[in-house]
Amino acid sequence: MITAKGLYKRYRKTVAVDHLSFDVRPGVVTGFLGPNGSGKSTTMRLMLGLDHGEGETLFDGKRFGTIRRPINEVGALLEAKPFHPTRSARNHLRMLAAGNRIPDRRVDEVMEFVGLGDVKRKKPKGYSLGMAQRLGLAQALLGDPRILLLDEPTNGLDPHGIHWMRDVLKTLAAEGRTIFVSSHLLSEMQLMADELVVIGRGTMIFNGDVDTFVREFTQSQVVVRGPDTAGFTAALEAEGGEVKAEDGALVVSGLEIGKVGHLAFTTGVELHELSTRRASLEEAFMSATGASEEFVAKEPVRAGGPAAPEGEAL
């Protein structure tokens, strides 16, 4: 169980983490989702006392700095390649193990577990990013901890590796561990996580289960196709619908599919298609975090077109 209260961190000008509070429960994978630069890494560093800021994080009731031999209780993988390039992978883990009274036998065990058994005496310098992430997971699992904090652990993994990482995390959660894993990809989180903490620009956007998030932030639209729908737009808009033309079809948002069908019937419009379409997950994610995106690319301005309102980056 992780309890974070009032986490706050500002760098000179930017507030990277703005009063975040959340709980991470054992037994499930909790995804920590947000676009790049939204403050995920900073939050995790704050939680572990690596960065100094405000707020408090308790791991099974204890602050990180007060835990004796902490890697036996909280495992962490933060940066992408935190290894000395010429110290063998096995020696890197032996070094951390030595500081927490973990026998070398356990080092070999975790290296086998993450699939690096054959290259454990090799130097991380020669590791691919995917292998480095596996070594990072081995490091996090070294003390067989009840709690895991992983910052974008699937970065650099191939699809097979991502699948493997997902299974590992799910299995660990099923054993009753507390798993907090960050990502900037909703599609990935949807496959991996049960619960979500979603942030944008350091502030909380959503905290709850994945399906609720998808439902809440996914607008469904109605697609209408017919031989002559030109006159239908006005009728739809009169009922409060928002209509866009899209290669020969009308895409209606803000109206139920039944309502659109009824309108077609009462106005006598012939239809060849009447269907619902869900916005993709990534679109949902964009709409949820869009206003809080750190770096917003300006819309391309059409030459000669009417001057668009300035796309103010918030």
Partner: peptide
């Protein structure tokens, strides 16, 4: 980073 997460 790993050093301080094992010896805070």
């Amino acid at each position: 980073q790993p050093t301080l997460t094992s010896l805070p």
